[in-house]
Nucleic acid binder design. Sequence first.
DNA 1: TCAATTTATTATCTTATGTTATCGTTTTGA
DNA 2: TCAAAACGATAACATAAGATAATAAATTGA
Lengths: 206, 206
Amino acid sequence: MLKNALRVAMSQIIRLKDDEWEAFEPFIEVKSFKKRDNYVSDSQICREVGFILRGSFRQYCIIEGEEKTTFFYFENQFVTNYESFVSQSPSNVTVEAMEDVQMLTFNKETLDRFYRLYPVFETFGRLIAENVYICAMHRLNTFLLNTPEQRYLHFLKSDDSKIILENVPQHYIASYLGITPVSLSRIRNRITRSVDSKVKDVRLKM
Amino acid sequence: MLKNALRVAMSQIIRLKDDEWEAFEPFIEVKSFKKRDNYVSDSQICREVGFILRGSFRQYCIIEGEEKTTFFYFENQFVTNYESFVSQSPSNVTVEAMEDVQMLTFNKETLDRFYRLYPVFETFGRLIAENVYICAMHRLNTFLLNTPEQRYLHFLKSDDSKIILENVPQHYIASYLGITPVSLSRIRNRITRSVDSKVKDVRLKM
DNA sequence: TCAATTTATTATCTTATGTTATCGTTTTGA
DNA sequence: TCAAAACGATAACATAAGATAATAAATTGA
């Protein structure tokens, strides 16, 4: 059953009893999106959290007429504009399907109800928040402590990079790393050359 | 009574019943730090959350022999290395008193116990986590979307800037904004000149 | 109090990034 | 299927930031 994927994901975070899940399950909806559809729209309030069964999303905001891509969401991940969802304030970003998407969703009222009903849902909410905070801080640190080139190398070593590199055009990744597409292209060129010359060095030493 | 300041702060976040507070209060400790003392030390596990009654802290990490200041904590704020505290993993930062400090603290075991005892503490933990996440994202956005100069201007407009500008040397602020002290000095110079020239323009038009 | 340290500014030089434009190639969608 | 759009690499140029050093002022602490 489709909804079971969410149960599995939640069970990796909290101990969910059968009755708790069975109470929650009826509030989960199955939704589909076509490529290019918006899941969250700029200046709208985000009233849901989604769990991606199939497909992926890109999050961007528009600054001086230009789209700046700030995040990606893939299969088996939760997707929402967390700030807008938590504070029920208008979103300042758009979350757009990069391909056709099938997902499960539950809304704010549902979650708030379950926060009140079952302490384990509060724990769930807390652990999710702690986790996204730690991820945000790691990313922030790459800006505070690294140059763009170091940031790209750091990104290549990260767990997220594989799925992103395989699914996302390079200029979106540049944006995600806070640099221009041209600059990322140059950085990649530089790195390749430096690796090549190292290979050459090794050859010369032989 | 000293501990009441924490009750007030917590009550701005959650509804705390008398019996809940009275159960919690005995686990709160009062601690003092001298200027330059470390509250959190690099590679140590952070086992506490502090609430600052008087004084301030600076958070930094050492990269290639250089201190990079990444955060400040002031009166009536919570202070901890959140990641280290939450995951009970070694801290990668140092939190050092910028002046003599008086604070209240409670430790991880206490908090975990109260998470289990009272759902309202889970709510407290969740709301704190949601809040620090939103703050981290706002800061991350200034790196993703702004140039260093825009970032400084943005910082000047922020709520935090007043207390930081009044209490912190400029080169720490530079570090906090992810730029070098020399560069921040130039940015300030540039801004002043541009404001000056605008004043001059106004005068000429009169 | 006074020497040592810290701090902020400024100058010089180097370099990486931003900007803009061009050019193939690939992908898209009507 | 084919024209249009998207994409990535690259070049040329301008600019701002990093690195380093010198200097003066302020602060610190013995």
